[in-house]
Design a protein around this nucleic acid. Structure first.
Length: 571
DNA sequence: CACATAATAT
DNA sequence: CATATTATGT
């Protein structure tokens, strides 16, 4: 409408005199044939290259198909099937193109709506030639927003600029409210409608490619540019890679210092796929959903991807894995054996050998750089150990019940009385927050005490302490239905029924390794060999054995466990 | 609102 | 290029 800065228009026109770009590819969307014809003619008169479409869907299809490239889109606001604004919205969402809205009325609200939705300009019918003549400037501005920016942030006063931004965001709050900041609307929106690059979604496939590249180059030598070359994905920029690489490295760092697997899992869970083949993020759940079609895949692997972490040692193959469930959802690795999900409900179900059930193609999928299947198994074992974090299957939510410790005191674990032992700090949740209630981990100690502690408890490395927990990766099937031990542990499920578990059965597959070295990861032992029979602690020449579960437990409950903000000094 | 992610700035 | 900061979406 007319108020859209007549001065500026004039200036644009002046500036446009000498370098009028011919052949600008303009897509015009209007349901009105007449208008369409007129616009087409006018655009041609301006030596542009118009394409006309009569409805939004067609327009969108054309744009998405990408067969024809456009520099700019002109959309009539009022259209029957797809509202002009809707189309504008979709284009904003999917494409990097300037859009000019067109309308018969110049209602300010309508204009503002257009601008707010990211339109570059708003024209009122009937459109005159000189208006059309200048549309190229929107293209120019769109492509090079900074060049025309009136904001004088060239004075490189970073502080000022930054604080200004901060202030602005503070003031404006969360979301920009449409149409109420009418004061500065026109000018600033008009020009500062800068356009960020469309976001790259790191799908599984992309991430896999990324990993392959990293794999080839080696993590330490992997730089964005090289990765970009190797990945050979046209729409990715070096910056995209850099960003992802940064995230990836951060993630590795976390995982490194926190083999609880939570961060690990979270990372992997970021990439999910539904069975239609569309990718979707799974942030909210942070979990894999079971996919019967087995199309979901994940790929990050500390061992194969980086090649810089030692592969797990001493892993016995062909072993029975404990519950590998996440919030009651099965990992893909147990996809074919739903019975495993019920493992802890009763005694009936024999455990499933994950290794035996991991289809080859998945293994290959996960470890593309290796082709020795034995090696896969090792890697997979290590991986599983890393990933597992003792999550309780939701269909049998074990809870900590009446566990007695020493002198008849009972423990009820909670987030509040949770011990803050220095050595445990590296096992905090990746985000640093305390684990949520439903992130409780349950474990069994060799003294038949069983905890429903939160994950920060987990570090007491059940897996590497043969005397405390059943080895998930026992060569002989520790989790086999044929139980021989007499030491049973009581578990109470969420239905309140009690069941007996073999003491070597872990409710949760624990592989939590406590480095005891401050958590720099140097001493992480992803897995320790375990045996079916319980062994004295000192059988294992491992510094971890300096702690027995009893020691830990008694220490905890005596001094720290009950405190609200208990902090344990170093021993 | 806290968090994760990707874009962007340094 | 690595890292820090900011923006955005959930």
């Amino acid at each position: 409408m007319a108020t859209m800065g007549g001065d500026r228009r004039q200036m644009m026109e002046d500036a446009a005199e000498d370098k009028f770009p011919e052949g600008l590819r303009v897509l015009v969307v209007d349901d009105d044939r007449i208008c369409l014809k007129v616009l087409e003619a006018l655009l041609r008169r301006c030596k542009y290259q118009p394409t006309t479409v009569r409805d939004g869907n067609t327009a969108l299809r054309m744009l998405m198909a990408g067969k024809q490239q456009f520099d700019l889109v002109i959309i009539d606001v009022r259209m029957p099937d797809m509202d002009g604004f809707k189309l504008l919205e979709l284009i904003r969402l999917e494409m990097d193109l300037p859009v000019i809205m067109l309308s018969a009325d110049c209602d300010k609200k309508v204009v503002m709506k257009g601008i707010d939705h990211g339109a570059s300009d708003f024209m009122v019918k009937p459109v005159c030639t000189h208006e059309l003549k200048n549309i190229w400037q929107h293209v120019q501005r769109w492509r090079n927003p900074k060049a025309i920016s009136h904001i004088s942030d060239h004075d490189s006063d970073v502080q000022r600029v930054q604080s200004a931004t901060a202030d602005k965001s503070k003031l404006s709050g969360n979301k920009r409210n449409v149409g109420d900041d009418s004061n500065e609307h026109n000018e600033s929106t008009y020009i500062s409608a800068t356009h960020s690059k469309p976001r790259v979604t790191w799908t599984i496939e992309l991430h896999n490619k990324f990993l392959e590249a990293i794999n080839q180059i080696g993590l330490d030598r992997a730089v964005p540019k090289k990765v970009l070359e190797l990945m050979n994905v046209d729409y990715l920029s070096r910056e995209n890679i850099a960003s992802h690489l940064q995230k990836y490295r951060l993630h590795l760092k976390r995982v490194n210092s926190n083999p609880c697997g939570n961060a690990y899992e979270r990372w992997n869970s970021s990439y999910n796929m539904n069975n239609k083949g569309n990718f979707m993020h799974n942030h909210e759940h942070g979990r894999w959903s079971v996919s019967s079609s087995d199309t979901a895949s994940w790929s990050t692997n500390n061992y194969s991807a980086t090649g810089h972490l030692a592969p797990p040692m001493n892993i016995q193959r062909n072993s029975y894995m404990g519950s590998y469930l996440h919030d009651g959802r099965m990992s893909r690795y147990v996809g074919k054996q739903p019975a495993d999900a019920r493992r802890f409900i009763g005694f009936g179900d024999p455990p499933v050998s994950l290794y035996n059930n991991i289809p080859n193609e998945i293994m290959l999928d996960e470890f593309p750089s290796f082709n020795n299947s034995n090696y896969y198994a090792d890697l997979m074992c290590g991986k599983l150990m890393e990933i597992s974090k003792g999550k309780t299957p939701s269909n049998r939510q074990s809870s900590f019940a009446n566990t007695t410790i020493g002198g008849g005191r009972s423990l009820v674990a909670s987030q509040v009385n949770f011990p803050h032992i220095n050595q445990l700090e590296s096992y905090a949740m990746p985000s640093g927050r305390l684990p949520l209630q439903n992130e409780k981990a349950t474990f069994i100690s060799n003294t038949t005490s069983m905890g429903g502690f939160t994950e920060q408890m987990a570090p007491f490395n059940m897996a590497s302490n043969t005397s405390s927990v059943g080895m998930m990766l026992n060569g002989s099937s520790a989790l086999d239905a044929s139980r021989t031990s007499t030491e049973d542990t009581h578990l109470v499920n969420n239905e309140g029924t009690t069941s007996m578990l073999h003491n070597l059965q872990t409710d949760n597959f624990f592989s939590l390794t406590q480095p005891l070295d401050g958590g720099d990861g140097a001493s992480i032992l992803p897995m320790q060999e375990g045996t079916l029979d319980q062994q004295p602690l000192n059988d294992q020449p491992n510094e971890i054995n300096a702690f027995s579960m009893d020691d830990i437990f008694s220490n905890m409950h005596l001094e720290d466990f009950m405190g609200d903000d208990a902090i344990v000094e170093e021993a």
